[in-house]
């Protein structure tokens, strides 16, 4: 996946190092190698590679990770916006 980089400085992923117990789960589930474990604490080493899938936050037993997870789908978002404006949706989403 090193050939593919999406926009920089946009993702909502946050890690609270104080709460982390260093179990390593986040590193195990992340398909983009965003985390590393150093000195028994998780660290975000490649923030911009995150695709906001939510696997890490879902699997952190102590809730040290937050991320606004969701599918990055343009059609789905257009539909959400149309719905917000009370306009009819355009066909199918994602």
């Amino acid at each position: 996946m090193k050939d593919f980089r999406y926009l920089k400085n946009v993702v909502t992923l946050r890690l609270d190092g104080k709460i982390c117990i260093g179990c390593g789960r986040c590193m195990e589930v992340c398909p983009h190698g965003v985390f590393t474990i150093e000195n028994r604490k998780a660290r975000i080493t490649d923030l911009d590679a995150c695709m906001e899938c939510g696997a890490c936050s879902k699997n952190c037993a102590v809730a040290a990770i937050t991320v606004a997870a969701g599918v990055g789908c343009a059609l789905g978002m257009i539909n959400e916006w149309l719905q917000g404006l009370n306009l009819p949706r355009t066909g199918r989403g994602c």
Binding site: M1, Y6, V10, M51, A69, G72, M77, C94
Partner: peptide, 17 residues
């Protein structure tokens, strides 16, 4: 832009922006 929904590396925040 629609293809972002099918790729495994595009974040929602990125697509929104």
């Amino acid at each position: 832009l629609n293809f972002t929904g099918s790729t495994p590396f595009t974040s929602r925040s990125g697509v929104k922006k």
